[in-house]
Design a protein around this nucleic acid. Structure first.
Lengths: 211, 211, 211, 211
DNA sequence: GATGAATGAGTATTCATTCAT
DNA sequence: AATGAATGAATACTCATTCAT
């Protein structure tokens, strides 16, 4: 029986919740190690230290764990991001900080990165959550006269694609602060900033960040 | 026995070539319908109108067809794109036209779209081909003093991500000329164009296009 | 569900052991009927009265059962032989008795005979076990000044070949006590006995045997 | 198209014979390389330089080639042995020389060794041929008052087993003249010779041999 | 006779899921 | 609730054999 994010969350909860959390942790871990389609029920239960039959007392089928694992990760990321963004009001700063924090959160938990990347297409919930979040910030920036764009779902997806590509590359080639700054600049360019202004904005936005 | 791109190419060739082409066509079709990992050898041979064993007279194993199917599609797209880009010398125009043509070629053959999207990560050849192509055009633009960027692999992947996202969306929601124009503008913004100049450049580049 | 040597051994053991034993019994039986290479997993499970997939809860692959079946038989024979040879100290008597008992054990379980004969070349363990056993007895005889030979691996294999041929013939044409006596005499001749002494020695050695 | 024993034999014969011989040669070669059960029709025709369908113009099925290949080898060995034994009249000398020559012929064509050893059990013809040959020599020796045995099929098989074991060992561990002498001595011991006489007899029999 | 494309029955192996204990 | 043995449908791959050209 190993430690794990969800299991830690469930400490103190009933036994049922703890067992369930252990299965989810095992699932997340295995997805990170071998990819979604290579995860077997037996691997999950073995990793969680129980008999294979036990699995079906907690999930109806394999799809269900996979979906819940992905959802849990997404919502954990989302909560952490919320916490770190509360006090910021300037839209460009919000966009830059959110991007930087998002990338950093994900790269610190490689097993989360994998799930999120694998599910970009599959998991509509995640994509939409992120999009809503982003949409609010961009609309704010438009209202503040900082961004020269029309806010469309298409635009949001374009920006998400930039972030996704950056994560993929850093996930494969290792974390890289310069690249993180570049995505931020690129996003600002997409939003209408000139190269020079984008660079300055990124610099100042990051200056004020503890991370 | 159905028609199909590769089978058409092989008309007149020997029987061996024709059968092989039929298997490839069936494979491409099935990938488009159900995704790579859901393709079964039996499906392929059934779709191609032959016995299951015949498959193995032409391919060593499942991986081999999948790889060849992806490769064939990529190279068909690449050839068509080359043909259409020959005479253009202005870098921004090249970038816009290539983007537009690429999207249009792929959306005309939805079964190709799927393969290309599924293999973005898997098929290193394709991604690198596209990247090289793009790199040449961007370096040209830098030399022509049109783009304000440093050319890095990271930048290329960012641009490819924009195009990939656009294709994905149009593949799901239907072809959309406005969105195609927007990707082009976004790419130019990334390359240092102001919103206004980007819009004008796209308009003029596309004006001269027959498609 | 049939009786069988290993299943009998496993009576009273856990269910897991009993199922495993049933699979081994079925395997041994099938090898005897059709030879090693003709044994199919489906035959084994059907003969053992279970579903095909059950096999893989107990063995990793076909090779593993075949190897274990052969090994189990060899070790069963070996144990039985040990039990029957304990008290004998005179080397020529040991050689004669061991030969006779070995042949008799094997011919009483025809399914064992087949496995042992088929694996003479494949199963190095068995051949070496028998050889070591034999070597000890022959060296004893040399020390007792009863045998006129130099003990070499080659000599041991020659003697084993005599026993193997005798078993093969009796396996095909039926058990035959005269032939068993003849092999024993032949072995003694190989070890330097004259025809007359060999005959007497065999007669006296066998006289004292209960079997 | 390669050279090969049977193909050489068939030089000058009709085309049909030559093609057939080429297939047999290929078969023998492949058996030697990978064992009987691993030989595939496609391998045979490829090795013989023809299309797979051609095979069935010459043989009814796979078993037929395998059988004929084994038979051809056996009869080639037999012919060569006959040639070398003609002039010898003393029975013990015949036995020793035949054994030595047999072993030497087989070890010189490793591909033949393999076939002969693999078919010891399967190919009744071969075993019986050798047995008849041997029987004649031993009966001669009994008539010459040189051997102290009763001639039975069982005895013949015992002797053949000794030779077979010697070939197997030398095939695996390399040709070894001492071991060849030892088999000969062992055979003479079986036939009633004392250790000393056996040794002398072998020495004198081999002295007169060109090989 | 020669060819080689096509065939399809046969087999090992995997794994989600069920269910009696 | 937990267990873990049993299940069997699903699937890739092999290869002797056939037969139209």
């Amino acid at each position: 029986m190993q430690a794990g994010h969800f299991r830690d969350q469930a400490t103190g909860a009933g036994k049922r919740e703890r067992t369930r959390a252990a299965l989810l942790d095992a699932t997340v871990q295995l997805i990170a190690e071998k990819g979604m389609e290579a995860v077997k029920i037996n691997d999950i239960t073995t990793a969680a230290g129980m008999a294979n039959g036990t699995f079906y007392n907690y999930f109806n089928d394999k799809d269900e764990v996979l979906r819940e694992a992905a959802y849990s990760v997404a919502s954990a990321v989302s909560q952490q991001l919320d916490r770190e963004m509360k006090a910021i009001t300037d839209a460009p700063t919000r966009v830059v900080r959110a991007t930087k924090n998002f990338i950093s959160i994900i790269l610190q938990k490689p097993e989360w990165a994998f799930i999120l990347l694998e599910n970009k297409h599959t998991l509509p919930g995640l994509r939409d959550d992120v999009a809503q979040y982003l949409q609010a910030d961009i609309e704010l920036g438009v209202a503040q006269n900082k961004f020269d764009v029309t806010v469309t779902p298409f635009l949001l997806q374009q920006i998400i694609a930039l972030v996704g590509a950056a994560i993929t590359i850093q996930f494969e080639a290792g974390s890289n602060e310069t690249q993180t700054h570049e995505v931020c600049e690129n996003i600002l360019r997409l939003l209408g900033f000139s190269p020079t202004k984008a660079r300055k904005q990124v610099a100042s936005a990051i200056e004020g960040d503890a991370n």
